[in-house]
């Protein structure tokens, strides 16, 4: 059943792809705008996914199957202006195209926290301090894991909560995925370099997902990863390029220092540049953490303060892949009920 109603999705990551597939399957005329050269967003950069270690590209392939033919995809799309006419929208692109929309779905996602802002950890200053995204790049490219001077690391530390749960840099929220990502990446490191010693410095191990706790236990029992409860206060470079870590072993109640050849910073989520830009264009409300504010935290999680504009994915809060996908499907059904003026749409809280 084809509908004449038009939906424009802004952002071609996981949520944008999945919501567009579902809206197109429902018969709507869907256009998916992506600022980069191809779809996939952050997912395209991750080799293996927690907690099953399945390849990221398998999920991307699944999402792409829904996009095929039914959704008009415009990559390298730069939005210049969005006008509102009664309940409809007109979207002007830099290349001169103008799109009409009866509803807009915003799926502008997140950016990774810029680890240089946490100066005491030395990212961008010390060569052997890298981020979780840099480590993942080693994995995806198949490059050998080496320190800056080309040696196989004998020990690696993972610092949790970099850019999250930290009023000093203005982000009080938990980014949700980084604890389990540290566990995943430490297991992958052990698989590649069996002699490497691994330390995770954490405040809480937030293993909320089904199977996350089992992965954590596997890291401890099978791979001997050491979990040390305490937030790293600072990292310093030794003359040989290794990194001295200072932390309190809070469960022993004593300060601790140890040397690692490589320090990996588990960077959190921040609202993306696209989220800021589109939010300002459409007068969307931001919450206290600068992600988009949903109309209600329990029941209107895909609805914005502007009629006809909806949200899905990590533009409203940090989400892992599974949650981004279910959120996208929820957004698609919310948009359908709006466009059909269904009675479920009229419920209030």
């Amino acid at each position: 059943m084809k509908s004449s109603k038009k939906v424009v999705t802004i952002g071609g990551g996981i949520a944008g792809m999945e919501a567009s597939s579902f809206l197109a399957a429902m018969g709507y005329d869907v256009t998916l705008l992506e600022k980069a050269g191809e779809l996939g967003g952050h997912l395209a950069k991750w080799e293996k996914l927690f907690p099953t270690m399945r390849l990221g590209k398998e999920v991307l392939n699944f999402l792409s199957q829904g996009i095929y033919e039914n959704v008009k995809v415009l990559c390298n799309a730069f939005i210049e202006r969005i006008d509102r006419e009664l309940d409809d929208f007109r979207i002007y692109l830099a290349d001169g195209k103008v799109l009409e929309a009866n509803a807009i779905l915003v799926t502008t996602g997140y950016d990774l926290f810029d680890a240089r802002k946490k100066e005491e950890y030395g990212y961008g200053i010390y060569d052997n301090v890298i981020t979780s995204a840099d480590l993942e790049e080693f994995f995806s490219s198949g490059k050998e894991i080496r320190t800056a001077s080309g040696k196989t690391p004998a020990s690696v530390g993972f610092v949790h909560c970099v850019g999250s749960r930290d009023q000093k840099i203005g982000n009080v929220y938990c980014s949700k995925v980084c604890c389990v990502t540290a566990v995943k990446q430490s297991i992958e490191l052990k698989e590649k370099l069996s002699d490497v010693k691994i330390f995770c410095f954490y405040m809480d191990m937030r293993m909320y997902g089904m199977h996350f706790e089992a992965l954590y236990k596997e890291a401890q029992e099978k791979w001997g990863v050491q979990f040390i409860r305490g937030r790293v206060s600072e990292a310093c470079e030794n003359s040989d390029g290794s990194i001295l870590v200072k932390v309190e072993d809070t469960l022993a109640g004593r300060p601790m220092r140890l040397t690692v050849d490589m320090l990996v910073l588990m960077v959190g989520f921040v609202p993306s540049e696209g989220t800021k830009k589109i939010g300002n264009m459409l007068n969307l409300e931001f919450g206290p953490n600068r992600f988009f504010k949903t109309r209600d935290q329990h029941v209107l999680t895909n609805v914005s303060n502007v009629k006809g504009v909806f949200f899905a994915g990590a533009c409203t809060a940090p989400k892992e892949i599974t949650h981004a996908i279910t959120d996208a499907r929820a957004a698609a059904s919310t948009i359908a009920s709006y466009l059909e003026q269904n009675s479920v749409e009229k419920r209030t809280i």
Partner: peptide, 13 residues
């Protein structure tokens, strides 16, 4: 009567 206090740090290395 002065002494150096012993270091309470865990020096893992």
């Amino acid at each position: 009567g002065y002494t150096l206090p012993s270091d309470r740090q865990i020096v893992y290395d």
